[in-house]
Nucleic acid binder design. Sequence first.
DNA 1: TCATAAATAGGTATTAATACTCATATAGTA
DNA 2: TACTATATGAGTATTAATACCTATTTATGA
Lengths: 216, 216
Amino acid sequence: MKKIVVVEDENRLRENIIEILQMEGYETFAASNGKEGLHEIKKNNPDIILCDIKMNDYDGYWLINELSKSEKFLNIPFIYISAKVDRIDIRNGMSLGADDYITKPFTRAELVSAINIRLKRKEDFIKNIDDSETITPIVAAQVREQIKNLTSSEKRILKLITENRTSQDIAAELFISIKTVDNHRSNIAHKLQIKGHLSLLKYCLNYKSIINEFEK
Amino acid sequence: MKKIVVVEDENRLRENIIEILQMEGYETFAASNGKEGLHEIKKNNPDIILCDIKMNDYDGYWLINELSKSEKFLNIPFIYISAKVDRIDIRNGMSLGADDYITKPFTRAELVSAINIRLKRKEDFIKNIDDSETITPIVAAQVREQIKNLTSSEKRILKLITENRTSQDIAAELFISIKTVDNHRSNIAHKLQIKGHLSLLKYCLNYKSIINEFEK
DNA sequence: TCATAAATAGGTATTAATACTCATATAGTA
DNA sequence: TACTATATGAGTATTAATACCTATTTATGA
């Protein structure tokens, strides 16, 4: 389980962040100022640090500065929270050695995304994972083109297939016959230029992220 | 098609990077120093900038400084290439407002990963994509636990299923009977506590990234 | 030596998806 | 008006995967 130290002096925001991160499966350690944060970091050796840059005492700048005194902590990704979107301000944090930042107010998705990406990135560098599984932009563009040519019923069914739904299930959901669903499946397969057993299912699961770009 | 300006004075490395990025489906614009780079950026309005920090004349520092004079360019993600792994050195680039960095020598996967992640991150923030599709750490941990309990034959077959291979195909690859493959599939399904038609295939495609963490 | 796990293989039945053909109603367009 | 695309539904056959059985060989550990 990945460990995160969260340093934030606004109680409401801190608790909010903690709750989100716990739901995402992280082990969290809370601190309301930099000094407490440093204590938690030394004690728990987290995988990532999330810290507000502006706090009343022992703020983010102080913490970054303390951490930079020891080699040991330089390798822990440090993400800071800044109140301003302005790039010039962001630099102050980055100049002290932070790895990333998010700006207030941020959404749940932004928070989770920033943390997941930074951890994934770190793992990528360590394990040097081959990204043969990654959908390259050129493939993504082709897939998007093909999906554009589907009718709205076809797109609706395509999206349901990505959710692991069976034809029977989809038929029940849309109040139509299984035969209708299967006919749509056949037509979709033709338009996507795929054929063979389970090829449509495989297509949907493989390009799930692209299919979900389209409106519901 | 995403546009990338690549600024690198070592011809060999630059051509290498360009080739990789073109194969990944990006539109590339090459420059061998900061001044040329600035010209390409102004002309082509790229989605991302990749720039070596140390070059003979008009280096990365110069380019970042020039770009920071105009609001217009502040929103283009800037990734720089640094020769040293040392974090202290990295800061010099970050302090000037860069968004990310990669260190020489880097692999193809590192390069592509850094660029894709930065672009994805930007899109995430713009479109605020819901990450319902994202595998949360808690789910990932459970999946890893389950896969650990598989035998090596089972793991081998599991990995082949994630590659869209059929039982027939896998049997041919491993010089074993289809029945053997299907028996392994059944045993795997039991260990993974899944049942039902196509559930194993769906499991494999959904947790592809986790399954591929395991050694070949 | 005995017990167990793992890998191998076969049999038989069922299920969901696909291939292919056909048919009907409706809405929009040349 | 006639044509076309779309959505709906059915029939029939095939395929790949799954469920549930049994069985043999080999290696490993108590």
